[in-house]
Design a protein around this nucleic acid. Structure first.
Lengths: 110, 110
DNA sequence: TGCAATGTTGGCAATATAACCAAATACCCA
DNA sequence: TGGGTATTTGGTTATATTGCCAACATTGCA
């Protein structure tokens, strides 16, 4: 395969990989509503602060969010609202899959 | 966190994870243009047939593609064209990130 | 029927992810 | 300045992912 194309797919997959974790999806959706600091997100996620901090750094590294300090706190905000459409698309995929599985059972006809 | 919400994020991340691999992105884009059998995709990808077959089964499992046999061959087709928009969005993210890095060097002003 | 071609599955080794704890850093205020 | 709060980073362990090879299954054809 062409080297340039390969690099493109690798770059794409790096960003998509950043989105492919339940906690990071939650963070992205929350940040689509408002800016939050790490401690607020930690509360929402319900995990160790260090864990949340690492998730945030992965999203930031992927270019999806950015941060700014306010006092001792670090606030994060979403840079790319288009990822929300993406989530909507994936949600449709899941819905269709579920419907097909229901059909397969023969219990209902959609 | 709410159990139902958690399940939703896990379902989303399962599908996104299926997309988060260079080879699988290539396959999705190719399948957006036409149906292909495993041997054709193997050629395009340039990896072992078994490797490609496993990638295809991951995409199929995620509900993104489906297959049908024609003789000894298995053809795959894309079920969800909306993932292409998604790829476009991610491409923008990458572009913006690259521009910012250029700016940071001070070499150019965008 | 026997063989060649097409795919899938199991196994193994290498690598990547993820979560927690502990330690280090940065910042604010008394 | 000293302590407390907020965050990041390093270390460790457990788990998941990936790629190839080998073995097996299916199909078509001579």
């Amino acid at each position: 395969m062409d080297i340039k194309l390969k690099a493109r797919y690798e770059a794409l997959s790096r960003v998509i990989k950043a989105l492919s974790h339940p906690t990071r999806l939650l963070i992205v959706e929350e940040l689509s509503r408002s800016r939050y600091c790490v401690c607020e997100l930690t509360e929402m996620v319900g995990a160790d602060t260090s864990t949340v901090s690492k998730h945030l750094s992965i999203l930031k590294n992927a270019g999806l969010i950015k941060d700014h300090k306010v006092g001792a706190s670090v606030y994060y905000e979403l840079l790319t609202p288009c990822v929300l459409d993406f989530i909507g698309c994936i949600e449709d995929v899941i819905k269709e899959t579920a419907e097909k599985q229901l059909e397969a059972t023969g219990i209902v006809t959609v």
